[in-house]
Amino acid sequence: MLPPVLTVRDLVKDFGDFRAVDGISFELGQGEILGLLGPNGAGKTTMMNMLLGLVSATTGSIRIFGKSLEKDRIEILRRMNFSSAYTSLPGNLLVRQNLTVFALLYGLKDCRRRVRETMERFGVTELAERTTGHLSAGEATRVNLCKAFLNRPELLLLDEPTASLDPDVVDKVRTLIRETQRESGTSIIYTSHNMQDIEFVCDRVIFMHRGRLIRMGTPAEVKASFASASLEDVFIQIARGGDLEVAGVQ
């Protein structure tokens, strides 16, 4: 059996008196897509930021590719990447220029060829000479994904990649993510408030609530454990019921 790409053990994050992440443990297998779900304030963003090394853990450990994120951060970051609806590439540069800069930041060999190939893969070649800030939301999402796959990451963190896109573009983007992941074998952590997205893209999901992990399994398993027809129903139960007892967590 292949070793996990990511191992999180008893992770805790306190901001003063507030516990944002409370004793989370899970693993991510090679080539697996794991959805990180939960209502606002569940601790997903803090979790993602900790996995990226942007927020330090209060206690617990994160090991990626078998290495400690705290000690080998740069070496790990070379092999992973990130895309979020809440960040953007500099709007005042051309798409090609932005991707070339990031190819250099990731220390890639033969940057021009890699940028060209990745743009072709994501169908954004025709956008190469466009100013990034002038792209539509759908185009910008594809360019962000292009940046995220530039270094052929073994682990990719996608934070609401389909947020604020129309349904047609959402469908295209998630199909693109799934196809690219199948070809590359990249392991992905995926957050979204769109439960259809999650069901289509993710192999396994984690539900978080008030910083705690309250359910983990395949979408079918999670739905069955809540006796719900859809992940959306599960989400609503947790968000409205609110309490961990609803989820059967002591």
Binding site: L54, F102, G107
Partner: peptide
């Protein structure tokens, strides 16, 4: 763009 830079190696 700051996050993109901080999560780059």
């Amino acid at each position: 763009n700051l996050l993109n830079v901080f999560v780059a190696p």
